[in-house]
Amino acid sequence: MKLFSVSAIALAAAMLVPFTAQASDKKYKLVLTSEAGDRESVLGGALRDWASRIEESSDGRIRVNVFYQGELGGQQELFDQLVKGNVHMMITWPQTSYDQRIGANYIPYLVMGWEDAIESFGREGWVRDVLEPIYQDIGLKYFGPFPEGFGGIATKGRYATSYEEAQGLKVRSQPIFPLPQTLQAMGFQAVPIDWAEVYTSIQTGVVDGDSSNVIYWDYEYFRDQLDYFVQSSHNFSSYSLLMNSGTWEEMDDEDRGIIDSAAIAVIDQQFENAKAEDDKWIAAAQEAGMEYIVPTPEQKAAWVERVRAEVWPQAEEALGKEIMDVVRANASVPE
């Protein structure tokens, strides 16, 4: 499977074809993908939307070939190919393998509610000011976030709303700093696993559940395996719209404007719809029999205190004092 994925990426990379040298007359075939989200998912729809807006605005001069989850490879492999320029665009959870500072996107208990999250992660928000130069340093153009909502802990057999109750529960974590460290601080045993391997890992008992995703992913993909979803809200789950800087820089201003405007439209639409979409899947999961648990304010406050005390110093060591000073100055005050 891996050999096929690499070959597919190599074939896809050949699609970046500028046919003429005149400004704004070049014809491109770009590759857009994500590690998650099938054709029918909200993320899959966003991929198509970004692609169609680009093609429409360029009168078909810039064509975008969309590949869905698993079609070109796994999470780390795809991010590697994006940095190299073999994949041109992604909506992805960026990996920290090239720069630990990308972990600023995943700092736990950064925001506490929807209003604060939208303000902080939005186009004029302080989170963008932190992230944009980091992406530039590793050769990526950052358009903005694709927000989904607040992540939780989905498990089978039993659930936890406290550090003590979480002891012995093994949950999958995205292999991105500081998400595994966050789960450990909450009392769980964190097992970093790539998205493509999560179902089998739950099914075979390697882990007891999934973590840090909004309920959509756990309900839609693992509903026959999971019994509970605890709305711990320890992370604000958002993908990022990214493009390889080499591809971006070789385009002229008109074509950059087309790509950027289309990205902004996709991001704005998702900010408008994200909470309602999350609420819809919370209701759907409950109707299907998954128990949805919201920790009490006291339970959440205990997690916030423990996680910030343990993980934020680790984040400062990995990301730098400058970033964490900005975080501490802007992060939500616990409710």
Results as ranks from 00 to 15, higher is better:
residue 37 G to E: 03
residue 34 S to K: 01
residue 36 A to P: 01
residue 44 G to E: 03
residue 17 V to Q: 06
residue 24 S to E: 15
residue 23 A to P: 15
residue 50 W to E: 06
residue 34 S to Y: 04
residue 50 W to I: 08
residue 35 E to Q: 14
residue 17 V to I: 07
residue 45 G to C: 02
residue 44 G to S: 07
residue 47 L to P: 05
residue 11 L to E: 13
residue 34 S to F: 07
residue 17 V to W: 09
residue 24 S to D: 15
residue 27 K to I: 04
residue 37 G to R: 01
residue 25 D to P: 05
residue 15 M to N: 11
residue 25 D to C: 08
residue 51 A to L: 05
residue 46 A to M: 11
residue 38 D to N: 10
residue 36 A to G: 07
residue 46 A to V: 01
residue 39 R to L: 06
residue 16 L to C: 10
residue 47 L to H: 04
residue 34 S to D: 07
residue 40 E to D: 11
residue 17 V to C: 08
residue 20 T to N: 13
residue 26 K to I: 02
residue 18 P to H: 12
residue 48 R to S: 01
residue 46 A to F: 10
residue 16 L to A: 10
residue 27 K to H: 15
residue 27 K to N: 15
residue 44 G to N: 10
residue 49 D to T: 10
residue 27 K to T: 14
residue 25 D to R: 15
residue 12 A to C: 04
residue 24 S to T: 14
residue 12 A to D: 09
residue 43 L to A: 00
residue 34 S to C: 07
residue 28 Y to V: 03
residue 35 E to A: 14
residue 26 K to E: 13
residue 47 L to M: 12
residue 40 E to L: 03
residue 23 A to D: 12
residue 47 L to A: 02
residue 45 G to Y: 00
residue 44 G to H: 07
residue 18 P to I: 08
residue 47 L to S: 02
residue 24 S to M: 11
residue 35 E to Y: 06
residue 51 A to C: 10
residue 33 T to D: 10
residue 27 K to V: 11
residue 35 E to R: 03
residue 14 A to K: 15
residue 27 K to R: 11
residue 47 L to D: 00
residue 13 A to H: 14
residue 43 L to M: 03
residue 34 S to V: 00
residue 12 A to F: 02
residue 20 T to E: 11
residue 16 L to H: 13
residue 34 S to E: 04
